[in-house]
């Protein structure tokens, strides 16, 4: 099979019967998931349902206990080279931004390029500025994270992930820690990325975003994928009782 059809027919993310335990507690139960290139997935569900755990298994911030996780053809096992290879392909944006507090914004975007991609400093800075412009804050390049608002910090965090030219970006509740007036500036950047064809897996409760951007919405509860469907179907015609209850709670807010 030639590589062209390979990338089109093979999912970028494939999870097969994945289980994850924290001690005796089972956080993920028999997770099956396939995400193809360019797809945008939204994951929602009550707190503690395993959403973070699921996406953190994708870049091995958590180790799954059994089942298989294959990212762009690379199976995640204990092999450090494979984990590194997967992390080069997968960017991540956290709820609490997690910028490096002791580095300027530009340096935050350059450090991994220099250390992981071995990009020369000048080139790394050039790429950093490119993505800072893309998230519309190039003028903040030489400030420190603490000097920026939450919305700006999260945009920097997205730019930092983009600098590594990932195939996939994972978002773990990227707007949950933000003041309401800053949520849209971050969602706008995410919508922009989606239009550009980025493969995205987003844990979020921003249902407007899910409706307009997602190809598929996944509902999780108690470590299981309860239901997945296209957004129109998911919101207007949910099948599972637990999904209905959840949507009622969310939408009544």
């Amino acid at each position: 099979m030639d590589s062209m059809t390979d990338t089109e027919t093979r999912p970028l993310i494939k999870m097969i019967k994945v289980n994850k335990f924290f001690g005796p507690f089972q956080a993920l139960k028999n997770i099956d998931l396939e995400v193809y290139k360019g797809e945008k997935i939204v994951i929602c569900g009550p707190s503690g349902s395993g959403k973070s755990t699921l996406i953190r298994c994708i870049n091995r911030l958590e180790e799954h206990n059994d089942g298989n996780i294959i990212i762009d053809g690379i199976e995640l096992t204990d092999k450090v080279e494979d984990i590194d290879a997967v992390r080069r392909e997968v960017g991540m944006v956290f709820q609490s931004f997690n910028l490096f507090p002791h580095m300027t914004i530009a340096k935050n975007l350059m450090i991994a390029q220099q250390l992981v991609r071995k990009t020369p400093k000048a080139k790394a800075r050039e790429i950093a500025m490119l993505y800072l412009e893309r998230v519309k804050i190039p003028e903040q390049a030489d400030k420190y994270p603490i000097q920026l608002s939450g919305g700006q910090q999260q945009r920097v965090a997205i730019a930092r992930a983009l600098c590594m030219r990932p195939e996939i970006i994972l978002f773990d509740e990227p707007t949950s820690a933000l003041d309401p007036e800053m949520i849209n500036e971050v969602l706008d950047v995410m919508i922009d990325l989606a239009r550009d064809g980025m493969t995205m897996v987003c844990v979020t409760h921003e249902m407007g975003f899910a409706r307009s951007v997602a190809d598929r919405v996944i509902f999780m509860d108690a470590g299981e994928i309860v239901e997945q469907a296209e957004p129109a179907e998911f919101f207007d015609n949910p099948e599972n009782e637990r999904t209905k209850v959840f949507l009622n709670q969310i939408l009544s807010h």
Partner: peptide, 27 residues
């Protein structure tokens, strides 16, 4: 040290040693 910084470094593909030197020690 903020564990979030350490996770961010790992998610960016930095090795344990690189994370220690460039992220943990300076913090």
């Amino acid at each position: 040290v903020n564990p979030g910084s350490i996770e961010a470094a790992r998610a960016l593909g930095m090795s344990t040693l690189q994370t220690f030197i460039y992220i943990r020690i300076p913090e």
